[in-house]
């Protein structure tokens, strides 16, 4: 399953809820304000660091660029463009959008 998160972790508990339900074999894609979760030096980055041991985490590059955050992403989080977003959706049989 591909999980997408589009809310800031300091605005909503969307990321926490997603992380609590992610199982091995899934992937997480951060989009829109969800990309703030991947920023180095934040509480959410610590949580993602733990998650990365079992599940790959992706972030949408255009959303990072828009927010001036391109250079601040936690190591291990993979950046994808819109084409990569489509590939991730195609690779996983189901998508859950955490809103």
């Amino acid at each position: 399953m591909l999980h997408t998160v589009n809310k800031s972790p300091t605005e909503r508990n969307t990321l926490d809820s997603c992380l609590a339900h992610v199982k091995k074999g899934s992937a997480i894609l951060l989009i829109e304000d969800g990309v703030y979760a991947a920023l180095k030096g934040t509480e959410s980055a610590k949580k993602l660091e733990a998650t990365l041991k079992t599940v790959p985490v992706y972030a949408l590059q255009p959303d990072l660029e828009a927010r001036g955050m391109s250079g601040r992403v936690l190591d291990g989080v993979k950046l994808v463009d819109y084409g990569g977003f489509v590939d991730l959706v195609a690779e996983h049989p189901t998508v859950q959008s955490w809103l």
Partner: peptide, 20 residues
């Protein structure tokens, strides 16, 4: 809170097609 993000340098919104 997240309002801080409004005034961060280096915002480039061309690829999300939204006005910067």
């Amino acid at each position: 809170d997240d309002g801080i993000y409004q005034i961060v340098k280096g915002q480039h919104t061309k690829n999300i097609d939204v006005k910067n």
